[in-house]
Structure formats: C-alpha cells, structure tokens
Design a protein around this nucleic acid. Structure first.
Length: 262
DNA sequence: CGTCTTCTATCTGCGTATCT
DNA sequence: AGATACGCAGATAGAAGACG
C-alpha cells in the first residue's frame, strides 16, 4: 500500500470509535467482508477470530481485515471493548499489505491518526476528505513499518552507514554557520575521520569540506540577495573570521564576487 | 567491507596593502 | 568605510595503500 496514491483509498460511511455495549457481539456471517476493515482496540478484553484463527485482544490490538475474510468477535461483559473501526476500499491491487494482526507496543502514533481520521470524517470542512485519505495511508504505512520491525527486520549495515552519513549532511545544511571539523562529524557518525571522509564523498559526491563550503555559499547568496546584508555582515553571520577569505571562497565557488550579488 | 596510517596538497587565518 | 588582493605559516583534509 506504500506505492498506491492516497486518492486510491476510497472511504466508506462505516467508521467510528465506540465503546461496545456489554451485550455486544460480532457473530460470524455467511458472507465474508466486502472491504478492508481497520479494527483497533483502545480498551477492554475480548477475542477476535479471523478465518478460524483466534486472537485474545486488549489495548493496542490492531487488525487489518481484508475483503474475503471471515470475522467474528466477543468480549468480556465486565470489561467491554472500546474500538475504532474504519472500512475502506482500494481501487487497485495493493503491493504490500499490512499483516492481519499485530499488538502495538507503542500505539500512540496510530491512536493519534485514528482520532484524526474520525474527526475529519465527522466534521467535514475544506479538504477534510483529502486529508482523511492521507491519514488512512499514513496508518497503513505505520502498520507496515511495525510489521517489518516485528519480523526482526534489520537494515543492512551499508544502509545504516548511509543513514548516518545523510544525517550528518543534513546537520551541515541546517547549520551553515557552524564550522564542523571532520573529527567532530566523524565522531557523531561513530566512524574514524578518514573512513568517514571517504564514505561521505562516496555517498554525497563531494568531500565534507566541499559540502560545508557549498552549504555556506548557498546561504550567503540567499542572505546577500534577499536580506540586503553587506558582504561583511554575511561573512560574520556565517562564521568567517576573514572577510576576504569569505570573498575569495565565494568567488571560487560561485564565479562572482559577493558584492556583485544584488 | 570497514577501518586505520602515512604523506602531501590544499585550506585557513592573519597581517598588510590597494582600490572604489 | 567597505571590498578586494597577496603572501606566508600552521592546520587540516584527501589519496593511496594495507590490514583483518
């Protein structure tokens, strides 16, 4: 469901958050489900059966029933279930589908999204249907991510390394006025200086130093062009101790002197 | 593939001078 | 006054190669 656009998620009018009555039960029907049904347990205890497999459910239990599934449920009258259910369709065949069941150890994100979905559908306003579809897709992505984690998915070592490098690259972009040394960045990435520098270049296509300078020059151009700052002010703002050094670096990377930027 | 060491080229900051 | 230019010494990052 990751690659399916949110516009392919088709809402139905069957959605709600409810506290089930003590007498509530969900008997097995002859006809299987006609659409997808997201079923989340907020509170209470009960038992849900899907295609002859039963699950004891409590807070955090989360199902994604699919078209064709046979479902039934009961609950403890003394401790009735509070659930959210959302029926929906998808107008194309999904690639990855979340598992039918998982018990969420950290349900906060899903709970927030469920509340948001129901709120959007109950009080229509500008863009609420579009946002609800986005929220529904977000829920599916979170379920898929949770499923991968539960399956013991470990990113490959090289993926983890690339993540670390990208994090450092973001750090540099976000703080163009900070002059990070390779040693500091390598330490943040938990790599040796040399190895970090090598890997940074292989992933980013330029050396750490080049990347830092480029980030600074890009920011300098913005400050000169849009903020009306003088060359000295910009040099100072970006941490240069020598205005000429800034000017020299700017000209080298940008092709024009900073004073020519208006 | 991940890591380190050594050598060397490049970068950086400072002082000083010139130009607009 | 602010921007640009140059030379120099010390600091730093990169390339190559080696190791497990």
């Amino acid at each position: 469901m990751i690659s399916i656009p949110e516009t392919s998620f088709i809402a139905t009018n069957f959605f709600s958050k409810i506290k089930c009555e003590p007498e509530w039960k969900w008997p097995r029907r002859e006809q299987p489900l006609e659409n997808y049904d997201l079923f989340y347990v907020w509170d209470g205890h009960g038992e849900v059966t899907v295609n002859h497999t039963s699950f004891a459910v409590e807070k955090g239990s989360c199902f994604l029933f699919r078209p064709g599934d046979h479902t039934s449920a009961t609950h403890d009258r003394q401790n009735p279930l509070t659930i959210t259910y959302i029926h929906f369709n998808i107008d194309q065949k999904p690639d990855l589908i979340p598992a039918i069941y998982r018990k969420l150890a950290e349900p906060t994100t899903i709970e927030t999204l469920l509340v948001r979905y129901v709120h959007l559908r109950l009080s229509p306003q500008f863009g609420s249907n579009e946002e609800a579809a986005l929220v529904l897709k977000q829920i599916m992505i979170n379920l898929l991510r949770n499923d991968r984690f539960e399956q013991g998915y470990q990113p490959k070592k090289s993926e983890r390394l690339q993540d670390r490098i990208l994090e450092i690259a973001n750090l540099i972009k976000e703080h163009p006025a900070t002059w990070y040394s390779i040693a500091e960045l390598a330490s943040r990435a938990q790599l040796s200086k040399r190895y970090f520098a090598t890997k940074f270049k292989s992933y980013m296509g330029m050396s750490v130093q080049e990347y830092e300078i480029q980030s600074r020059i890009e920011r300098a151009e913005f400050l000169l062009h849009y903020c009306g700052m003088t060359v000295s002010e910009v040099a100072h703002a970006l941490g240069y101790k020598d205005v000429y050094f800034f000017s020299r670096q700017f000209k080298k990377h940008y092709g024009k002197s900073p004073s020519s930027i208006k």
